[in-house]
Amino acid sequence: MLEIRDLHVEIGEREVLHDLSLSIGKGETHVLMGPNGSGKSTLLMTIMGFSQYHVTHGEIHFDGEEITHLPIHERARRGIGMMFQRPPTISGLSLGKLLAATAGGGDEMVLDLARKVNMDRFLSRDINKGFSGGEIKRSEMLQLMIQRPSFVMLDEPESGVDLENISLIGHTIGQLLDKDVHIVNRKHCGLIITHTGHILDYLDADRGHVMCDGEIKCHGNPREILKEIKTRGYRECLECRQD
Protein backbone atom coordinates (compact mmCIF):
# COMPACT_ATOMS: atom_id res chain seq x y z
CA MET A 1 0.00 0.00 0.00
CA LEU A 2 2.92 2.34 0.79
CA GLU A 3 6.11 1.97 -1.19
CA ILE A 4 9.11 4.20 -0.63
CA ARG A 5 12.07 3.85 -2.98
CA ASP A 6 15.59 5.29 -2.60
CA LEU A 7 14.35 8.35 -0.75
CA HIS A 8 16.68 11.27 -0.05
CA VAL A 9 15.30 14.20 1.95
CA GLU A 10 16.79 17.55 2.83
CA ILE A 11 15.80 20.10 5.44
CA GLY A 12 17.34 23.37 4.38
CA GLU A 13 20.70 22.48 2.92
CA ARG A 14 21.20 19.38 5.02
CA GLU A 15 20.33 15.84 3.90
CA VAL A 16 18.58 14.05 6.74
CA LEU A 17 17.24 10.91 5.08
CA HIS A 18 19.56 8.89 2.86
CA ASP A 19 18.57 6.29 0.32
CA LEU A 20 15.65 5.05 2.37
CA SER A 21 13.31 2.34 1.15
CA LEU A 22 10.28 0.94 2.92
CA SER A 23 7.26 -1.11 1.95
CA ILE A 24 4.08 -1.51 3.98
CA GLY A 25 1.39 -3.82 2.68
CA LYS A 26 -2.38 -3.58 3.11
CA GLY A 27 -3.45 -4.56 6.62
CA GLU A 28 0.08 -4.39 8.02
CA THR A 29 1.27 -2.47 11.05
CA HIS A 30 4.92 -1.47 11.19
CA VAL A 31 6.87 0.00 14.07
CA LEU A 32 9.70 2.47 13.69
CA MET A 33 12.33 2.76 16.41
CA GLY A 34 15.58 4.61 16.67
CA PRO A 35 17.52 7.08 18.77
CA ASN A 36 16.48 10.72 19.04
CA GLY A 37 17.36 12.68 15.93
CA SER A 38 17.65 9.60 13.74
CA GLY A 39 15.03 10.86 11.25
CA LYS A 40 11.89 8.98 12.29
CA SER A 41 9.62 12.02 12.52
CA THR A 42 11.22 13.41 9.37
CA LEU A 43 10.16 10.29 7.52
CA LEU A 44 6.55 10.68 8.66
CA MET A 45 6.48 14.39 7.85
CA THR A 46 7.93 13.65 4.41
CA ILE A 47 5.32 11.00 3.69
CA MET A 48 2.64 13.50 4.74
CA GLY A 49 4.19 16.09 2.42
CA PHE A 50 5.21 18.92 4.75
CA SER A 51 6.89 21.76 2.90
CA GLN A 52 9.97 21.90 5.08
CA TYR A 53 11.02 18.43 3.90
CA HIS A 54 12.42 18.39 0.36
CA VAL A 55 12.61 15.12 -1.51
CA THR A 56 15.75 15.39 -3.64
CA HIS A 57 15.70 11.87 -4.94
CA GLY A 58 13.47 8.82 -4.83
CA GLU A 59 9.75 8.20 -4.89
CA ILE A 60 6.81 7.65 -2.59
CA HIS A 61 3.92 5.55 -3.90
CA PHE A 62 0.60 5.11 -2.17
CA ASP A 63 -2.07 2.72 -3.30
CA GLY A 64 -0.35 2.37 -6.67
CA GLU A 65 -0.02 6.11 -7.30
CA GLU A 66 3.08 8.21 -7.03
CA ILE A 67 2.48 10.93 -4.44
CA THR A 68 6.04 12.23 -3.98
CA HIS A 69 5.11 15.79 -4.89
CA LEU A 70 1.39 15.90 -4.12
CA PRO A 71 0.21 18.63 -1.75
CA ILE A 72 -0.56 17.61 1.82
CA HIS A 73 -4.33 17.79 1.56
CA GLU A 74 -4.34 15.58 -1.55
CA ARG A 75 -2.43 12.93 0.37
CA ALA A 76 -4.87 13.26 3.25
CA ARG A 77 -7.80 12.90 0.88
CA ARG A 78 -6.23 9.77 -0.63
CA GLY A 79 -6.22 8.18 2.81
CA ILE A 80 -3.03 9.16 4.60
CA GLY A 81 -3.45 10.35 8.17
CA MET A 82 -1.07 11.35 10.89
CA MET A 83 -1.04 11.70 14.65
CA PHE A 84 1.32 14.54 15.46
CA GLN A 85 3.70 14.41 18.37
CA ARG A 86 3.61 18.15 19.00
CA PRO A 87 0.71 19.65 17.06
CA PRO A 88 0.41 23.44 16.93
CA THR A 89 -2.08 25.45 18.98
CA ILE A 90 -4.51 27.35 16.81
CA SER A 91 -6.10 30.23 18.67
CA GLY A 92 -9.76 30.82 17.96
CA LEU A 93 -10.28 27.53 16.16
CA SER A 94 -12.15 25.09 18.32
CA LEU A 95 -11.59 21.37 18.09
CA GLY A 96 -15.28 20.95 17.32
CA LYS A 97 -15.14 23.36 14.39
CA LEU A 98 -12.18 21.59 12.86
CA LEU A 99 -13.86 18.22 13.28
CA ALA A 100 -17.03 19.57 11.69
CA ALA A 101 -14.99 20.89 8.76
CA THR A 102 -13.19 17.56 8.39
CA ALA A 103 -16.32 15.49 8.79
CA GLY A 104 -18.37 17.75 6.51
CA GLY A 105 -21.16 18.05 9.07
CA GLY A 106 -22.54 15.21 11.18
CA ASP A 107 -22.48 16.84 14.62
CA GLU A 108 -23.95 13.77 16.28
CA MET A 109 -21.30 11.51 14.82
CA VAL A 110 -18.58 13.90 16.00
CA LEU A 111 -20.05 13.99 19.48
CA ASP A 112 -20.35 10.20 19.65
CA LEU A 113 -16.73 9.72 18.65
CA ALA A 114 -15.59 12.47 21.02
CA ARG A 115 -17.26 10.68 23.90
CA LYS A 116 -15.39 7.48 23.04
CA VAL A 117 -12.06 9.19 23.71
CA ASN A 118 -13.34 11.43 26.53
CA MET A 119 -12.96 14.57 24.46
CA ASP A 120 -16.58 15.72 24.34
CA ARG A 121 -15.83 18.43 26.93
CA PHE A 122 -13.05 19.78 24.75
CA LEU A 123 -14.99 20.38 21.54
CA SER A 124 -15.52 24.07 22.25
CA ARG A 125 -11.92 24.67 23.26
CA ASP A 126 -9.22 26.01 20.99
CA ILE A 127 -7.24 23.19 19.45
CA ASN A 128 -4.42 22.09 21.74
CA LYS A 129 -4.58 25.27 23.81
CA GLY A 130 -3.76 24.28 27.36
CA PHE A 131 -4.22 20.59 26.58
CA SER A 132 -2.21 18.13 28.66
CA GLY A 133 -0.04 15.51 26.97
CA GLY A 134 -2.83 12.93 27.18
CA GLU A 135 -5.45 15.37 25.95
CA ILE A 136 -3.35 16.22 22.91
CA LYS A 137 -3.05 12.53 22.04
CA ARG A 138 -6.78 11.97 22.49
CA SER A 139 -7.51 15.03 20.37
CA GLU A 140 -5.23 13.68 17.65
CA MET A 141 -6.92 10.28 17.89
CA LEU A 142 -10.33 11.87 17.59
CA GLN A 143 -9.29 13.77 14.48
CA LEU A 144 -8.05 10.54 12.93
CA MET A 145 -11.25 8.72 13.89
CA ILE A 146 -13.21 11.35 11.93
CA GLN A 147 -10.74 11.33 9.05
CA ARG A 148 -10.63 7.53 8.95
CA PRO A 149 -7.40 7.21 6.93
CA SER A 150 -6.44 3.92 5.31
CA PHE A 151 -2.80 4.49 6.22
CA VAL A 152 -2.16 5.87 9.71
CA MET A 153 1.12 7.32 10.90
CA LEU A 154 1.54 7.77 14.64
CA ASP A 155 4.43 9.71 16.12
CA GLU A 156 5.04 8.45 19.65
CA PRO A 157 1.41 7.91 20.58
CA GLU A 158 2.26 6.94 24.15
CA SER A 159 4.59 9.79 25.08
CA GLY A 160 3.30 11.95 27.93
CA VAL A 161 0.27 9.73 28.45
CA ASP A 162 -0.71 8.05 31.71
CA LEU A 163 -1.41 4.33 31.88
CA GLU A 164 -5.16 4.63 31.74
CA ASN A 165 -5.00 6.78 28.64
CA ILE A 166 -2.40 4.57 26.96
CA SER A 167 -4.93 1.78 27.13
CA LEU A 168 -7.62 3.99 25.58
CA ILE A 169 -5.29 5.25 22.88
CA GLY A 170 -3.90 1.77 22.21
CA HIS A 171 -7.34 0.30 21.69
CA THR A 172 -8.42 3.22 19.51
CA ILE A 173 -5.35 2.83 17.33
CA GLY A 174 -6.19 -0.85 17.13
CA GLN A 175 -9.60 0.04 15.72
CA LEU A 176 -8.10 2.48 13.23
CA LEU A 177 -5.82 -0.30 12.05
CA ASP A 178 -8.63 -2.86 11.74
CA LYS A 179 -7.18 -4.99 14.54
CA ASP A 180 -10.72 -6.01 15.40
CA VAL A 181 -11.11 -7.41 11.89
CA HIS A 182 -9.85 -10.83 10.80
CA ILE A 183 -6.32 -10.62 9.50
CA VAL A 184 -7.26 -11.47 5.93
CA ASN A 185 -9.88 -8.72 5.84
CA ARG A 186 -7.75 -5.91 7.23
CA LYS A 187 -7.50 -3.01 4.83
CA HIS A 188 -5.91 -0.31 6.92
CA CYS A 189 -2.21 -0.15 7.60
CA GLY A 190 0.01 1.88 9.88
CA LEU A 191 3.46 3.08 10.80
CA ILE A 192 4.09 3.80 14.48
CA ILE A 193 7.08 5.53 16.02
CA THR A 194 7.70 4.31 19.54
CA HIS A 195 10.53 4.67 22.01
CA THR A 196 9.14 2.59 24.84
CA GLY A 197 7.15 -0.02 22.99
CA HIS A 198 4.30 0.36 25.49
CA ILE A 199 1.87 0.70 22.66
CA LEU A 200 2.71 -2.85 21.60
CA ASP A 201 0.97 -4.05 24.75
CA TYR A 202 -2.30 -3.06 23.12
CA LEU A 203 -1.82 -3.99 19.49
CA ASP A 204 0.27 -6.38 17.49
CA ALA A 205 2.73 -5.08 14.95
CA ASP A 206 3.84 -7.11 11.94
CA ARG A 207 7.27 -5.65 11.36
CA GLY A 208 9.79 -3.42 13.07
CA HIS A 209 12.47 -1.11 11.68
CA VAL A 210 15.34 0.68 13.34
CA MET A 211 16.47 4.04 12.01
CA CYS A 212 19.83 5.59 12.63
CA ASP A 213 21.44 8.61 11.01
CA GLY A 214 18.66 8.94 8.46
CA GLU A 215 18.72 5.35 7.27
CA ILE A 216 16.73 2.24 8.06
CA LYS A 217 19.43 -0.16 9.15
CA CYS A 218 17.52 -3.00 10.64
CA HIS A 219 14.26 -4.86 10.03
CA GLY A 220 12.68 -7.67 11.93
CA ASN A 221 10.21 -8.81 14.52
CA PRO A 222 9.25 -5.68 16.44
CA ARG A 223 9.20 -7.34 19.86
CA GLU A 224 12.61 -8.93 19.35
CA ILE A 225 14.09 -5.64 18.17
CA LEU A 226 12.57 -3.84 21.14
CA LYS A 227 13.95 -6.46 23.52
CA GLU A 228 17.45 -6.05 22.12
CA ILE A 229 17.24 -2.27 22.30
CA LYS A 230 16.14 -2.48 25.90
CA THR A 231 19.01 -4.75 26.86
CA ARG A 232 21.82 -3.56 24.60
CA GLY A 233 20.89 -0.08 23.45
CA TYR A 234 20.67 1.13 19.87
CA ARG A 235 24.33 0.90 18.95
CA GLU A 236 24.55 -2.76 19.94
CA CYS A 237 21.37 -3.55 18.06
CA LEU A 238 22.52 -1.86 14.90
CA GLU A 239 25.95 -3.42 14.91
CA CYS A 240 24.45 -6.84 15.51
CA ARG A 241 21.95 -6.61 12.68
CA GLN A 242 24.42 -5.16 10.22
CA ASP A 243 26.77 -8.11 10.56
Partner: peptide
Protein backbone atom coordinates in the same frame (compact mmCIF):
# COMPACT_ATOMS: atom_id res chain seq x y z
CA UNK B 1 -5.08 21.58 8.84
CA UNK B 2 -4.10 20.43 5.37
CA UNK B 3 -3.07 17.11 6.91
CA UNK B 4 -6.73 16.80 7.92
CA UNK B 5 -7.78 17.19 4.30
CA UNK B 6 -8.44 20.94 4.04
CA UNK B 7 -6.95 22.59 0.96
CA UNK B 8 -4.54 25.47 1.53
CA UNK B 9 -7.09 28.19 0.86
CA UNK B 10 -9.65 26.70 3.21
CA UNK B 11 -7.02 26.03 5.88
CA UNK B 12 -5.82 29.65 5.67
CA UNK B 13 -9.36 31.04 5.86
CA UNK B 14 -10.13 28.76 8.80
CA UNK B 15 -7.13 30.08 10.72
CA UNK B 16 -7.96 33.70 9.91
CA UNK B 17 -11.53 33.10 11.00
CA UNK B 18 -10.22 31.78 14.30
Amino acid sequence: LMARGLDEETATATIIRG
